[in-house]
Amino acid sequence: MKDILRAFLATLLAVLVYSLAGGAGPMLLVVLNAFSVVVLYFSVRRGEVFGAFLGTACGLVQDSFSLGVFGVGGLTKTLLGFWAGFVSRRIDVAPFFRNGLFMLVMSVLEMILWVLVTAVVRRESLNFHGGLILLQPLVTALLGSSLFAVERRFRARGSRGA
């Protein structure tokens, strides 16, 4: 129950980040996908089922703020959550660089899937914003792995204090 509440708050936080990024500049929205970071973080923490549910929720929230086809984000993030949770249960993704690489691979897979689904649904080529969109997985991986690193540091400090 606590995790569901945390995931809900994290989704709200993603909406907050998305709102701030939209105000700061349109190009920031292209490179920064806060919803993906939330889905990746909780999928690694809680596993594939939780990740898939959270992916659906986050993807649909993201879709509701977009004129694109409603459900494309939901589908891609559902699969992202599932994959991330599934793989992280089978290999150790705790070390910083491995974590970063893992998130990068997951984000790239999500982007490929998003591009494919959007191309099929809309039957036209996508706007890659001069290649800027390709930075999105990199930024997502960097933010996600940094989030884990910060959390680890806090936990270590907490356990030393105790």
């Binding site: 898939a52 086809v69 409603f70 459900g71 939901g74 589908l75 699969l79 599932f82």
Partner: peptide, 30 residues
């Protein structure tokens, strides 16, 4: 877990398919 994934994926695909062709009114859910 696989069945849950299949259910969620089917749900999203259903959402996508009811909007094709595009130009229809936004769904109540959206």
């Amino acid at each position: 877990s696989v069945l849950i994934l299949a259910g969620l994926a089917a749900f999203n695909i259903l959402l996508i398919s009811i909007q094709i062709p595009r130009g229809a009114e936004k769904s109540l859910f959206e």
